[in-house]
Amino acid sequence: MHSSPFPSPLPPSSVGSPSVLPWSVGSSSANPSAVLTAQSVTKSYGPTVALAGVALQIGAAESVAVMGASGSGKTTLLHCLAGIIAPDAGAITLLGPDGPQRVDTLGPEGRSRLRRQHYGFVFQQGLLLPELTAVENVALPLLLDGTDRRRAEAEAAHWLAVLGLAGLEARRPGQLSGGQQQRVAVARAQVGAPSVVFADEPTGALDSRTSEQVMTALLETTTGAGRSLVVVTHDERVAASCDRILELRDGLVVHERATLPQQDAHGQQVLVRGQQVAR
């Protein structure tokens, strides 16, 4: 993986120019460090084919942006990878702490448990529970999984502090700005130490400066802590901050490119994802 600070625009030379990748889409040779693998995944809604045989691999501590026009299948792909829906055919495998696990063969209950225990989610609007305080919102995934309340809230407070929200634990979402709400959502996605975090247009409802802060926070807390990140986005700047960009069209990955490491004003490679958040 490389480091790419959000503020820097994607260098023109990298856009549209396929790079040599450690593993490629549809490759038969499996990447041993892949956390999430999809093979020949198809999904149709009636006569409409949303996914037409997608194959991909997401490496450990790798960030991957999924781009494409509306209707290209990117949200369906994210839903299949995340176990929100089951694909019609193909295989999806998660390499979790307990070894490889087939996502596509799980029933609704199993998929629910998988999402609760191994995945984190960040949605476009944050979608926090308005009644709960910030710390309770972040602690919710742990509480749902049976963690003791005191421990869950201590863990949640830690993540809020990591995301620069110390002191705001008792505030409710309505008392926070849009950027703060989205950072609470980022903290909620991390609190259960998931293997993979899925973000669906995480900065879609934010201005560019706040987007930058949220995306940096998201990268720092996921790939910076050794987790993988899958981001569905329309925003080229958001995509450029990830390690790889997959482009979907008509339910197929038609293009894949690696983004280039970003440099600061002195030509030094910038490190944006430190280990300070790793626990």
């Binding site: 995340a82 929100i84 209950e109 629910s112 448990r113 998988l114 999402r115 609760r116 225990q117 995945y119 989610f121 949605f123 609007q125 979608l127 529970l129 308005p130 919710l140 995934p141 749902l144």
Partner: peptide
Amino acid sequence: ELFTSLERMGMS
């Protein structure tokens, strides 16, 4: 929207 997001997060 909220109920959908909770279901996606794994809340039964």
